[in-house]
Simulated scan of single mutants.
Amino acid sequence: MLNQWSERLWTYEEPLRFLGFEIGRIMTVIRLSSGGLFIQSPSELTAELKSALDALGEVRFVAPASKLHGHLYMEQYEAAYPTAELLAAPGLDVRRPDLQFDQLLGDTPDPRWAPDIDQVAILGNRWISEIAYFHRPSRTVILGDVGYHIGDGSPLKTRIMAHVAGVYKQVGPPLDFRLTIANNTSFRRSLQDVLAWDFDRVIPGHGDIIESGGKQAVLDGFEWML
């Protein structure tokens, strides 16, 4: 159920259909050096997933990538883990007034997860600001909709869509995201902040995980902007 990538890093993949295409979605689980769990882009909290998480440790933080990516099941974690803190990406507190958020995320990581996780706000898009995360011990960058990476394992219809959208075997946002970038300078600066991290693995929001060579993959995927 949970795929382990390093001593304190796991992922969980679930199906997701968007506009008729099966694109899937990836949740990332990090065990902090302090012992608790940091959940990025939470998946539906089934009984099986809850049991797997409980075996790893106490869920302490639940974070999305953006106001559109990774918030759908936060209320399930709020109910199941009353002491866990819900974190909001920019704009999510307005989109989900039904949830009580403990913190609004930006460029600066909270001291409680900063020893393990760094973060950058990806700015410049007209509609969405996304939080990219860097798990320092495993040299892993974790993305959301800024980081599609559709490969051969996806259905044919999805692969055709990915070719058109510019995300087939390439890391990056789909065409609709690119067309709504309003400030190239801010977006480019955000990407440069991500590339300043010493990472090798990339966990995209949708598609295939890049186990090694991730920095070059990001450079290649965002060449149109960099």
Rank of each mutant, 00 (worst) to 15 (best):
G151I: 03
P174K: 09
R188C: 13
K169G: 14
R96Y: 07
L104H: 07
L179R: 05
S190W: 01
E78S: 15
I128Y: 00
R139P: 07
E130V: 06
A121E: 09
Y81N: 03
P90R: 05
L86A: 03
I181V: 08
K169N: 15
L92E: 06
L156Q: 12
P97S: 06
Y133Q: 05
T83P: 05
L86Y: 00
Y168S: 11
T108F: 14
L87Y: 00
K157W: 10
V141W: 05
V194T: 05
Y133N: 03
E75H: 11
D152Q: 15
R95L: 11
P137S: 15
G144Q: 08
W113K: 01
L92N: 04
R96N: 07
Y133S: 05
M161C: 14
V171T: 11
P90T: 06
S154N: 09
S190Q: 07
V194I: 15
L143G: 02
G151E: 07
K169V: 13
G172W: 02
I181Q: 02
G166T: 10
N183S: 11
N184E: 14
G124R: 05
R188Q: 14
G172C: 10
E75L: 07
W127I: 06
L143N: 01
Q192G: 10
D110P: 00
F101P: 00
G124V: 08
T140C: 11
R189W: 09
P111D: 04
D198M: 14
A80M: 04
Y77K: 04
I117W: 00
A162K: 00
P115I: 10
A79M: 14
E78Y: 13
A182Q: 11
Q119C: 12
A79C: 10
P155T: 11
I117T: 02
V94I: 13
G153H: 02
G147P: 08
Y148W: 05
F134E: 04
A182G: 13
G151R: 07
R95D: 06
F134N: 01
L191I: 02
D102P: 03
G166V: 12
L87A: 01
A121G: 10
P137I: 06
R112G: 04
R159E: 15
L92W: 03
P109H: 00
I131W: 00
A182K: 13
G106Q: 05
N184C: 15
A88F: 03
G144S: 12
E85L: 04
D193N: 08
P109S: 02
S154P: 06
H149W: 10
G144D: 10
A80R: 03
D116Q: 01
T180H: 07
S129T: 15
Y133D: 04
R139H: 12
I131Y: 01
R139M: 14
A182N: 13
F101M: 01
D98P: 07
